[in-house]
Computed example of a mutant assay.
Amino acid sequence: MTTRTLMLTTLAMLAFAGNSLLCRLALRDTDIDAASFTSLRLLAGAVTLWLLMHLRKANRGAAGSWPAATALFVYAAAFSFAYINLDAGAGALILFGAVQLSMLAWGIYRGERLGLKGCSGLLLAFAGLLVLLLPGASRPPTGAALLMLLAGAAWGIYSLLGRGVNDPLAATTGNFLRAAPLALLLSVLFIGQASWDTPGLIYALLSGALTSGVGYAIWYSALRGLQSFQAACVQLSVPIIAALAGSLLLDEALSGRLLLSAAAVLGGIALVLSAKYQRA
C-alpha cells in the first residue's frame, strides 16, 4: 500500500465515522428533525458530487439507477431516524456489522462456501450483535437498533448493486440525484414534525457535502490502490473510530457490552474475510 493510498484510506474512514458523529450530534443537540436531516444530507451530497463530476477532466455525465438510488434513500432515512436514540459507536457497529453480514448472506445465497473458519467467524459476528441487542441496562433501544439494521442491509444492497460499475463517481452522483427527491417526499410526509435551527442545518450540510460527498470521492480514489480484502477489512475500523470519537467528543459511555460486542462482530467478520482471501 502506497503512502498516498494509506492517507486517502485514513481520510475516508474518518469521513465515514464522521457521518455517525454529525448525525447523532444534530439529532441529539439541535432542533432539526430526522426527515429534514435526511433531505439536506442527500441534497448536499448530490450537489457536491455533481460539482466534482463537472470539475474533473473526463466528464461523462451522471449514471446510476433507480434501484440503487432507492437503496441509498432507505439507508439514509433509516440511519437518521435510528440516530435519534442510538449512541454514535453503537449505531456504527450495528450499521457496519449489518452491511458486511448482508453482503456475506448474499454470497452464501449465490452458492459461496465459507468453510470451517468462515462459518466460525460468521457465527461469532452474529453472536456479537446478539450480545449487543439482548435485554440489559446498556442495550440500545430496540426500535432504533432495528432501524440501523435496516440501514445496514440497505447499504449492503447498494454496495452489491454498485459492483462492477465503470465509473463509480458518476454512478454515485446519479444515485444521489435520484435519491434527493425521495428524501424531499419523506420530508413532506413528516411536515408536521419538521423543525430545524442553524446548528442542525450546518451539521446536515456538512454530513452531505463533506463526510458523504467528498468522503465517497476520496474512498473511490483509495480503492484504486486497495485489494478487495483490504478494502473490506479497513472498513471495520469505522465503528471503533466512531465509538472512541463519540466517547471523547459527545461524552458517550464505552460500556463493557459495547466493547465485547465490537470485539465479537469485528473479529468474526475479519475471520470470514480472511478465510475468503486465503481461498482466493
Rank of each mutant, 00 (worst) to 15 (best):
1 M>H: 14
3 T>S: 14
3 T>A: 15
4 R>H: 12
7 M>N: 13
7 M>T: 15
12 A>D: 00
14 L>E: 02
20 S>N: 14
25 L>P: 00
26 A>H: 01
27 L>T: 02
30 T>K: 04
37 F>E: 00
37 F>K: 00
37 F>W: 03
39 S>N: 04
42 L>E: 01
42 L>G: 00
47 V>F: 06
47 V>K: 02
48 T>M: 09
49 L>V: 04
49 L>S: 01
49 L>N: 00
49 L>G: 00
49 L>F: 01
51 L>C: 08
53 M>Y: 00
55 L>K: 06
56 R>F: 04
57 K>G: 10
65 S>H: 03
67 P>F: 07
70 T>V: 14
73 F>Q: 01
73 F>N: 00
73 F>S: 00
75 Y>D: 01
76 A>H: 07
79 F>E: 03
79 F>C: 02
79 F>G: 01
82 A>V: 07
86 L>Q: 03
89 G>W: 00
89 G>R: 02
92 A>H: 05
92 A>T: 09
92 A>E: 04
94 I>A: 03
95 L>K: 01
96 F>A: 00
104 L>E: 06
106 W>V: 11
108 I>N: 06
109 Y>T: 13
110 R>V: 06
112 E>Q: 14
115 G>H: 07
118 G>T: 05
119 C>L: 12
120 S>A: 15
125 A>S: 14
129 L>A: 09
130 L>E: 12
131 V>E: 10
133 L>S: 11
134 L>G: 10
138 S>M: 13
141 P>K: 13
143 G>A: 15
143 G>F: 11
148 M>H: 05
148 M>A: 07
149 L>K: 03
151 A>R: 00
152 G>W: 03
154 A>V: 08
156 G>W: 02
158 Y>T: 04
158 Y>M: 14
159 S>P: 12
162 G>D: 12
165 V>G: 10
166 N>W: 08
168 P>K: 13
171 A>S: 15
173 T>H: 09
175 N>L: 09
176 F>I: 05
179 A>P: 04
180 A>N: 06
180 A>W: 11
186 L>F: 11
188 V>Q: 14
192 G>F: 08
192 G>H: 08
193 Q>A: 15
193 Q>I: 07
194 A>R: 12
194 A>E: 09
197 D>M: 08
199 P>T: 04
200 G>T: 05
202 I>W: 09
206 L>W: 02
210 L>P: 00
211 T>I: 10
213 G>D: 01
217 A>I: 04
219 W>I: 05
220 Y>I: 14
229 F>N: 11
234 V>D: 10
235 Q>H: 11
236 L>W: 04
239 P>L: 07
241 I>C: 07
242 A>D: 07
246 G>K: 01
254 L>A: 05
257 R>P: 06
257 R>M: 10
258 L>Y: 08
258 L>P: 01
260 L>T: 15
263 A>H: 03
264 A>W: 02
265 V>W: 02
265 V>E: 01
269 I>P: 02
269 I>V: 13
273 L>M: 13
273 L>S: 03
273 L>N: 09
277 Y>P: 01
278 Q>L: 14
278 Q>H: 11
279 R>V: 13
280 A>K: 11
